[in-house]
Design a protein around this nucleic acid. Structure first.
Lengths: 266, 266
DNA sequence: GCACACCGTCTCACTGAATGACACGGAGTC
DNA sequence: GACTCCGTGTCATTCAGTGAGACGGTGTGC
């Protein structure tokens, strides 16, 4: 877990912003999210390197506005409000996207019997899981709504890359690439090769590159502008991942993504 | 949809807060969430009744910090970033709560074959769905992660009420109660009766009071302090809702909630 | 029993960050 | 070509935000 205090990249590209209170408040929310446990004023103030009184003022406001909750067990502890989830869910253009997708996802789930994931692209940086249809198998993969993955470690991410202009892909793969699993490729050339392959076939594959024993086949959904905005993936434990069936799964997932694109852009 | 401009209740109970920038920024996020569509600076500024330049400054900051996204199709439009969902998910004490619950939920899903919902209590106001195990039936109920319901219209909400001190229940039921469905009860006395019944039996029932044709049986999960923090419900279409089986389902869901409470508070 | 460290809370004089009226250039309309 | 509404940017003014510090309570070690 990266400490929130060091921000070597920040001072640059600041510009004449002029909303430090807001920035600080959001930072408090972020740290609470990352820390992921009830946390006190003092600790929080140390984590973001701000005076206690300032942090407390921010916390009180966040509480008043319903973004954070206070619990005074023995001492006062703060945490994010579940309301955040409710807000994140109602509020987003991907609401319509999900509505366009849901029936197709259910159909793909019925056809494959495997867990179906539907993720959206977040700022060209990561994929965020927004919907899921469970597998019928007793042994199945589990991933939580809201879970995020880098682009280079997931079938959804690689499917999205395969739909982006090549120069953008190069720029993205030139960034530092995290090695999440032993099986994760962090070689830009190797990844570019995979992306080109995915572009040709219309689907991307992930073999335990993101989470242990989890394999997936995915295809991207395009928005009105033709740029990728989301991805559908079939996710399964490696015990059921038969390489021979990949082309079949690939075709299904590609067709599903295509159908969602059509429903969505209409 | 309530217009964000009129806030008759706000001026009171303000106190010497002292973070209007943060409040305004959060308000912008909220309005974007509620509006739920790409939206421009001007319209936003009219909705929250703030000068255009102020709103723009806030938006830029929200964008820089990764909470909002800008798309310049023809003109500039803003929307929430998917990152919000990722933040909401990682960040919360209910992460551990869900971890404690997931196995029990899967077991209950396997036993019943119905959709299992797991919701947390949000500020004594609403229940927010944080996890779901899908039914195996072709005809099943659908509800999105992050969906919220009032306490008096859902099995989860009534189960939670049944675990609260009676005076608090009275206070909550004294608030204006929305009639979401024809079947929704908005009579405090009737609801209190239901709550007492649920308290006695250990589970609560909802018969199409929240969404059409959706019935549910639910029980509450207690936190370390003994107060209710979440609820498990078995959710199904009314065609499969056999009143005769309710006690059986009730016992299962009650035992599951109990098991989660034990796992969680250990 | 005492000293000490650390907790969360609250005050208040100071000041610089936030403010918002206004100007600007461009797109669409009549 | 006159008008309106859009998003963007500027800058003098000032009030909202700041943070050092005081305070009371709690737990620990001596």
């Amino acid at each position: 877990m990266m400490p929130a205090t060091e921000r070597p990249d920040e001072p640059a590209a600041q510009g004449p912003a002029g909303t430090q209170t807001l920035i600080r408040g959001l930072r408090v929310l972020e740290v609470m999210a990352v820390q992921n446990r009830p946390i006190g004023v003092g600790e929080l103030s140390r984590l973001i390197d701000l005076p206690k009184s300032t942090v407390q003022r921010l916390l009180r406001t966040l509480g008043q506005e319903g973004w954070a909750e206070m619990s005074s067990d023995p001492t006062t502890r703060w945490r994010l409000s579940p309301r955040l989830l409710a807000l994140a869910r109602t509020g987003a253009p991907w609401k319509t996207l999900r509505e366009a997708a849901i029936l197709h996802l259910a159909a793909l789930g019925a056809r494959t019997g495997e867990t179906i994931h539907f993720s959206v692209l977040d700022r060209d940086v990561q994929m965020v899981l927004i919907d899921r249809v469970d597998s019928i198998h007793p042994v199945r993969t589990f991933n939580a709504i809201g879970a995020s993955t880098p682009l280079h470690t997931s079938a959804s991410g690689k499917a999205v890359l395969a739909m982006l202009p090549l120069d953008e892909v190069e720029r993205i793969l030139a960034r530092p690439l995290e090695k999440v699993m032993p099986n994760t490729s962090t070689d830009p050339r190797h990844l570019m090769h995979q992306v080109l392959e995915a572009k040709e076939r219309g689907y991307a594959v992930n073999i335990s590159e993101n989470r242990p024993h989890v394999c997936a086949v995915g295809a991207a959904v395009a928005g009105p502008g033709g740029r990728p905005v989301a991805a559908v993936t079939i996710s399964m434990p490696d015990v059921r991942f038969e390489p021979a069936r990949v082309p079949e799964w690939g075709a299904w997932v590609r067709d599903t993504a295509r159908a969602i694109t059509d429903t969505f852009t209409d």
